[in-house]
Design a protein around this nucleic acid. Structure first.
Lengths: 159, 159
DNA sequence: ATTTCTGTCACCGAGGTTGTGACGAAATGG
DNA sequence: CCATTTCGTCACAACCTCGGTGACAGAAAT
């Protein structure tokens, strides 16, 4: 239960917000704008944004001139929080349908469960060390500068 | 692309083979026998076994008194090999449908890709340290002894 | 030759994910 | 007060992947 693209969409969205330095008192970005860059339906984006908002990573405001912005500094947004917000299932899932009359199967289930937990821990640990700020740093400098200086109706996002 | 139960089925299968000390010159186990314990269709099991065989982890022989057995010592079977054999896709997959006219999207794709590689590396590393022997050790001693002494038609597997 | 078992195919149904339209609620501006 | 914008969420369709199942050919043992 993990082959969705929600995590990728979430990271993409957060990078856009960070690169454009979108803020409440400035120019929040709309889901429609960002949907163009992600090449997805605005509703899909809003579903992801909704999860991120519940996790306290972004804030939103409806109405004219409303939109989405980061609720925390990029340095304080770690990737494991993002994954936890949009994709809560375990990566490697155990079997639910074992034959409970078979003692080997019952014991194996526990063992496999421990493997699953181990993998999940490894994923979480590796993502916890990665912040949104780290990712934005990987963007070409020219790009982030262009975005930061962007007035509404930015040419850096449009198609 | 990782929410399948193939990995769990593979581990379960390998544990059965290890616990029963199945060997070519002894009592290879049939997919039908093991399917009972896993509570899955024999064909599903054979699909997994086929992948494991291609990876050199198990060996098979058709025909009467044929079946499956471990091709290596449990100490030499690491879990990352198992995962690689049955589930080759990346755990967290990037978006394929970005808007390639948007410079932010193009750059973000690379960044997300690096995150994906990082996660995959973490998973691989954590699984590489875990061998089939480690997992079998976690089984209750009584169980492995009962299995090891098992003649054909074992009561420890049947329903 | 018969039996047993693997290997593989084709097909179906279940479940989850994305795409899309629609509607209400909230916020801004005239 | 009203029109506009935008979020939030629902319902539905399209699609894809996965597991379950039956079928059949080939290999091996007796």
């Amino acid at each position: 239960m993990a082959d969705s693209q929600r995590f990728a969409v979430a990271v993409h969205t957060l990078m856009i917000l960070a690169a454009h330095k979108a803020g409440e008192a400035g120019h929040p970005m709309t889901s429609a704008e960002m949907a163009k860059s992600v090449n997805a339906n605005p509703v899909v984006l809003r579903r992801v944004i909704s999860s991120l908002a519940q996790a306290g990573l972004v804030a939103t405001r409806p109405g004219a001139h409303g939109g989405v912005w980061l609720a925390k500094a990029p340095n304080d947004i770690a990737m494991d929080q993002v994954r936890g917000a949009v994709d809560e299932g375990p990566l490697v899932c155990a079997r639910t349908k074992i034959n409970s009359d078979c003692p080997v199967a019952v014991a194996a289930l526990d063992v496999i469960d421990s493997v699953s937990k181990r993998v999940d821990g490894a994923v979480r640990d590796s993502l916890a060390l990665l912040t949104l700020a780290d990712l934005v740093k990987q963007l070409p400098d020219s790009l982030t500068q262009a975005c930061a200086a962007t007035p509404p109706a930015s040419p850096t996002l449009a198609a």
